[in-house]
Design a protein around this nucleic acid. Structure first.
Lengths: 327, 327
DNA sequence: CTGAAAGCGCTTACAG
DNA sequence: CTGAAAGCGCTTACAG
């Protein structure tokens, strides 16, 4: 059923090598070119990628490992990567780790086995097993979202965004603040965003601020927020992600608090939904798709052995919307 | 750098075939087994997938084509597929068509070239070029979300869900209704959902109903809804997707209408966010992840040449929430 | 411009 | 249990 290059050669009456040359743009006379072309069309021949790759020892596939498929940040980043890779005639192979760090490691090795040209890892936490894997695989690895010494990384400016967000919140007159963050194992989201915010607060002084931690899931944030609202009455929740902010928003409704009059809320991310909801959410927008494109472009440079910055930083923008009230 | 099976064989002092047998669980003596094992560990040898696949002529990869990465339905379906495939030791290769039908066709052929064992297509529209591609590629194809004669398909019960939604809306006393649908090129969403709803309305009689069409994007729905609200004052918008409902919700806010007191809204899909927003959205929930799992399982049967139903139907559930008022 | 031959890394009957 | 050999489908110097 599936034709091989030999079939084409025999039908056309030329040698395999000639067909191969035709396929790869080598020198072939116009006449044979036409003959081969028509035979290929008739037979519906498609080259066997494996045989090609076996020779080439390299593919034009870039592996991308994502912690989860159902995240705005991840899907936007993937879209950006995909777009840019397509420009370079490269394919993107998505590998889902389902937020399982061990599976993430497995995926790295599995991508190596599939001879991808490079690996883009949408990182959350980096363990020593990760570092070992980076060392072992003989292909370029680029981290997106987390920074780690010794590997290439593209990060969002979590610190800067959080600092600006802190400045903004304070400028709006808030002095009784809950910062609802996440585990510090996640350096970018758990540590950097907190630190940036802390810096802004510190510079301002006289401010009552409580740092709390919750999970990434909306439901977790909802529960945590309900508890905090009962115990403590902040004028604002500064949330480390938009999803957390969404949970807090729901908690406010459940507690009968008007947003932003009774309670202000901010997020990080700039998910599409934050603009649609009412009140719309004040948040620090990260340019995920853009970051994805940059990641892909940088990876292509790495693959072509051009040099790139060890650490690249993607931009952000504070979106002042309706969920923050002036105090 | 990268070791081959020959290197391992030479270091161990055996033949390539023995190493291969070891790798594939053939008969090898305990002693050689141990030796080979240790050499492989030392060298960090990983088999070359291409060489393997070149022989096997088949991979354990299932290709999945999605119209877009940033859709709740798509990502949930992918997660379901991925989960189930993993159970079968199979890989999922995601191919994004960015809502470009031509690219979708290209992706089918490209997956064939990569010798995937089967293709799961999260379908939107099926053109004749699609049908030609299905015929030409010599591997099983399964459609998800759309039904088409001659191909295997797994669909959501769009008609049933829409019928039930119609019944529900009418039972809540609504008699001046806008059904905000999408292009009829999309049979499942544009035609089936409308037909199911129509059937319910027809059975009820005496009802003023207006059928309108809009795009899939929240922004499109927002604009369309604004126009409709100005021209016509329905008591309810029945929207063909949750995203459209979200757009209408925003439009209502912008027009100063209270939901659900001034205007009721329903959707289709059951996206996570519909539960979080306020008021929460009444919608027909489809079980995307479950559908993905079933799709993967069915595909595995197809790959193993077991027989499956030509058309499978996934379940749904009407979620009665806060966005519909009793009239 | 064209063809014969070697080789990419693996698997698989076939002998032994 | 083990090894030599052929072959999967393609590419790539090397001659001609």
């Amino acid at each position: 059923m599936a034709k091989t290059i030999l079939d084409i050669a025999q039908i056309t009456g030329v040698a395999k090598s000639t067909v191969s040359r035709y396929l790869n743009g080598g020198s072939v006379s116009e006449a044979t070119k036409r003959k081969i072309e028509s035979v290929i069309k008739e037979t519906g021949y498609v080259p066997n990628t494996f045989a090609q790759s076996l020779k080439a020892k390299k593919t034009n596939i870039i592996g991308t490992i994502v912690p989860r498929l159902d995240s705005y940040a991840a899907s936007q980043t993937l879209i950006g990567i995909d777009e840019k890779l397509r420009e370079y005639q490269c394919q993107m192979l998505i590998s889902n780790s389902s937020q399982d760090l061990e599976r993430e490691i497995e995926n790295i090795y599995s991508l190596e086995r599939q001879k991808v040209a490079g690996i883009i890892l949408l990182a959350t936490q980096i363990t020593s097993a990760h570092l070992e894997a980076f060392r072992k695989v003989d292909i370029p690895v680029l981290l997106v979202g987390q920074q780690y010494d010794g590997t290439y990384s593209l990060v969002h400016d979590d610190y800067g965004a959080a600092y600006d967000m802190g400045k903004y919140v304070l400028s709006m007159g808030h002095r009784k603040i809950v910062f609802l963050g996440v585990t510090e194992k996640d350096i970018a989201v758990g540590v950097r965003r907190k630190e940036g915010f802390q810096q802004a607060v510190q510079e301002a002084g006289n401010c009552e601020i409580k740092y709390c931690e919750t999970g990434f899931a909306i439901k977790d944030a909802l529960e945590t927020a309900c508890r905090i609202i009962d115990e403590y009455r902040p004028s604002i929740f500064v949330c480390a992600t938009d999803n957390i902010a969404l949970g807090v928003l729901k908690a406010a409704y459940m507690k009968g608090l008007q947003v932003p009059t009774d309670l202000s809320i901010t997020g990080f991310g700039g998910y599409e939904v934050t603009e649609i909801i009412h009140p719309s959410l004040t948040t620090a927008k990260f340019y995920y798709k853009e970051a994805g494109q940059l990641a892909a472009q940088s990876m292509m440079k790495l693959v072509n052995e051009e040099s790139i910055e060890k650490v690249m930083v993607s931009r952000y923008k504070i979106l002042e919307r309706e969920s923050v009230d002036k105090r």
